[in-house]
């Protein structure tokens, strides 16, 4: 099973942030790599506990989305910058 990229969570991102985010810039809090969100590595399987977005350069976790009951929770602590 291979990872997909930030394009695949475009709908989720728009739902959470209220705007298109795949073209937004991001900076990895661990290694400083700068990429558009569409180019990040996304582990988002149909039956997974959550969606994990990682830096393709260092595999560091940048964002985690978890659906808890009817609420989508998002953790962005792995990012140094977004937007």
């Amino acid at each position: 099973m291979e990872a997909v990229d930030g394009n695949a969570i475009g709908g989720l991102l728009q739902e959470v942030f209220g705007t298109e985010m795949t073209a937004a810039g991001s900076v990895c809090g661990n290694c400083g790599a700068a990429r558009q969100v569409a180019e990040l590595a996304v582990y988002a399987y149909a039956h997974a506990p959550g969606t994990v977005v990682r830096c393709p350069s260092c595999d560091s976790v940048l964002m985690v989305f978890v659906k808890i009951h009817d609420r989508t929770c998002v953790d962005l602590l792995g990012l140094a910058a977004l937007g």
Binding site: M1, A3, A41, Y43, Y45, A46, H47, A48, P49, G50, V52, R54, D59, V61
Partner: peptide, 9 residues
């Protein structure tokens, strides 16, 4: 047997 992961294998 769904395959799920939070990161690369």
């Amino acid at each position: 047997f769904p395959v799920l992961s939070a990161g690369p294998t």
